[in-house]
Simulated assay, not measured.
Amino acid sequence: MSNRAYNFNAGPAALPLEVLQQAQEQFVEFENSGMSLMEMSHRGAIYERVHNETEQLVRELMGVPDGYKVLLVQGGASTQFAMVPMNLLKPDQAAAYVATGSWATKAIKEAKLFGEVAIAASSEADAYKRIPSLDELNVPGNAAYVHLTSNETIEGTQWAEYPDTGDVPLVADMSSDILCRPVDVSRFGLIYAGAQKNLGPSGVTIVVVREDLVGAPSMTVPTMFRYDTHAKSGSLYNTPPSFAIYMANRVLNWVKAQGGAAGVERLNREKANLIYSTIDASGGFYKGFANADSRSIMNVTFRLGSEELEKKFVKDSEAAGFVGLKGHRDVGGLRASIYNAVPLSSVKALVDFMGEFARTNG
């Protein structure tokens, strides 16, 4: 399809073209059933198979070991900001958080509604341009868990290596970098991710949680906000977001066909290196926002010499068929989100555009 935009949206984000085409083919009638999957009962055998296969694909592609539950829930990562402390925090404990940017800050704000919060490390003094080093972490002795944001979409920073928190469960918001690279799930107590960046459309959230952390919360928690509710029912306690789960299923199968997490990581690093090399070789025309050792392979953030020039970059890029390159309103600047499904051809087109824009505006 020659009229496809160069989609660099931060989320909802690009989906694989072949997945969209497959969904189009299957939308009106799914597997000779006489109806769309969207019309079926979530208690029926056909949907249940798709549902269970989606969970198994998450297990396979992430290498989820025994002793973990995979949940498919609604509400996005923003709901998890509350569910994590509601389910894991006890009255005599503190929730430890690493403050790395906009999304970590929102998670901290939510956790404070439910109990004591300790900041284990922060890069606020450096305008969130970096990920704290592992030796900066100061975890209190009464910590219920340590929470980090694996990738900050707005600032464009990403953990290159995760901390070892010992007996204290490590909790990670991986909404914007889940399955962009292999991860050792056994190092985490809980991982959550909204699907709308790397796994599908908005509507479903993946939660991978160690079974010993799934139990009766110490505080009064509504039924729908308890992990044990969803764990006991196989994520079918209530009507699930069936279309979003179906699309996640298709995207997960696509990731598997690319060689799994290791396969997409190779492509993701090639895409990121192309853009970062263009920034670094521009003689200062483009200025990367994140420190070099904290750069994300999912969200490339950069600035130009003036806001006026940045506005011109956005305007000219949109005229050339690029979408989503304007930075988040909270920080400004420019951002290219290059999630798993963003094709290498789009990144090459962007690099060519950046080179020409620097030549004509430098």
Score class of each variant (00 low, 15 high):
V264H: 03
A244P: 06
A257G: 09
W254K: 05
G234P: 10
K271A: 09
A261K: 00
A257I: 00
E265M: 11
G234C: 13
G234Q: 12
A248S: 14
Y276P: 03
G260M: 08
S233M: 04
N238L: 15
R250E: 14
V255N: 00
Y237G: 00
N273L: 02
V264C: 02
M247S: 02
G234L: 14
N268M: 14
I275C: 05
A257E: 13
I275D: 03
A272F: 13
T239A: 09
N238F: 12
A248N: 11
A244E: 05
A262T: 08
N238S: 15
R269V: 15
M247V: 13
R269D: 10
E270K: 12
V264T: 07
P240Q: 11
G263C: 01
K232S: 15
W254S: 08
A272D: 12
N268D: 10
Y276I: 08
L267R: 06
G260L: 06
N238V: 12
L236K: 15
E270C: 07
S242M: 14
N253H: 15
G263I: 05
R269E: 14
A261W: 00
M247C: 08
V251F: 06
N268H: 08
S242Q: 13
V264L: 03
K232A: 15
L252Y: 02
Q258V: 06
N273H: 04
S242V: 11
P240M: 12
K232Q: 15
G260N: 08
P240E: 07
R266E: 13
N268I: 03
K256M: 08
K256F: 09
L236Y: 10
N268G: 13
K232Y: 10
V255L: 10
K256L: 08
R250T: 04
